[in-house]
Amino acid sequence: MTDRGRDALRTTTDSLRIGPSQMQWTGSELRIDINEIASPPLVSRIRGRIVLTPRAITEVELPLTEDGAHVWRPFAPVSRIRVDLDAPGWQFSGHGYFDANFGTRPLEHDFSYWTWGRFPTKAGAACFYDAIRRDGTSLEAALTFDTKGQSRTVAAPPRTAFRRSNWLLRRETRADPGTMPRQVKAMLDAPFYNRAVVETVIAGETVQGVHEALDLDRYASKVLKPMLAVRVPRRRGWPG
């Protein structure tokens, strides 16, 4: 993917275009058209469409800091997704979600570490957001969502550490006492960030969902941060 300048941005009430890629809300589904170039070492063109169909849209906005400088917005935590990319084996459909983070300050200024997980359940989905803030406080958020978009704050099972990533990044998530989470599918592995499909047990139900761990001390490193320019190229603008 590519970081682009302001000239590459186009927005309307129901669409967002950045360079050659765009997202459009039709009123019932989110259509994401991708036309990008993958980062090294597997440099290749990535084209295709992703269609996300929410079961419902939530009204939840979760402040991640006391002053609201960072907010998590789970727009559609219970959805269906269809992926159709122009490459063999990159077509599938299944359970999906759509969320976003918003902020007015760099993440590394306010957080040192966080984990997040969203797990499909028989009733809908469960989400866990745990973060260590720079001011010494912590965030421990546990919410469930039903298929109508209704949310409920619940008591979370204990934080449970499981196998570190290939970059030895610390990972933990919520799990019933006596059970051990485990990675079942690798998704993205970087020195400061890991995303994977993780299996755990929540309220007696075995679930598999997307999990991420983010070490912002590593991210802020003067050695590591410049390396991102190699993985994520930058372009000032976009013609048209």
Rank of each mutant, 00 (worst) to 15 (best):
M1S: 11
D3H: 00
G5V: 02
A8V: 05
T13Y: 00
L16P: 08
G19Q: 00
G19M: 01
M23P: 02
W25V: 07
W25S: 07
T26I: 03
G27Y: 04
S28I: 01
E29R: 01
L30M: 12
R31S: 04
I32N: 07
D33K: 07
I34T: 13
P41N: 11
R45V: 12
I46Q: 10
I50K: 11
V51H: 02
L52C: 10
P54G: 06
R55Y: 13
R55G: 02
T58Q: 06
E59R: 14
V60F: 06
L64R: 13
L64I: 00
T65C: 09
D67Q: 04
H70R: 11
R73A: 03
F75G: 00
A76T: 01
P77N: 06
V78M: 04
I81M: 11
D84T: 01
D86C: 00
G89I: 03
F92C: 04
S93F: 02
S93E: 14
G94L: 06
G94C: 10
G94P: 05
F102Q: 14
G103Q: 13
G103A: 13
T104Y: 08
P106T: 00
D110H: 12
F111K: 11
S112K: 11
W116F: 15
P120D: 07
C127W: 03
D130W: 10
A131Y: 10
I132E: 15
R134P: 08
L139G: 07
A141T: 12
L143T: 01
L143G: 03
T144L: 12
D146L: 05
G149M: 10
G149L: 12
Q150H: 05
Q150S: 09
S151A: 09
T153N: 13
V154S: 07
A155I: 02
P157N: 06
T160H: 07
F162Y: 15
F162C: 03
R163Y: 05
R164T: 06
S165T: 07
N166M: 06
L168Q: 14
L169G: 10
R170N: 09
E172I: 00
E172S: 09
A175Y: 03
G178I: 01
T179P: 09
M180S: 14
K185T: 13
K185D: 08
M187Q: 11
L188I: 05
A196T: 01
V197K: 06
V201G: 08
V201H: 13
I202M: 08
A203M: 13
E205K: 07
E205S: 08
T206F: 03
T206H: 05
V207C: 09
Q208L: 07
G209N: 14
H211L: 06
H211T: 05
L216T: 01
K222E: 04
V223M: 13
V232L: 10
P233A: 05
R234E: 12
R234P: 00
R234D: 02
G240F: 07
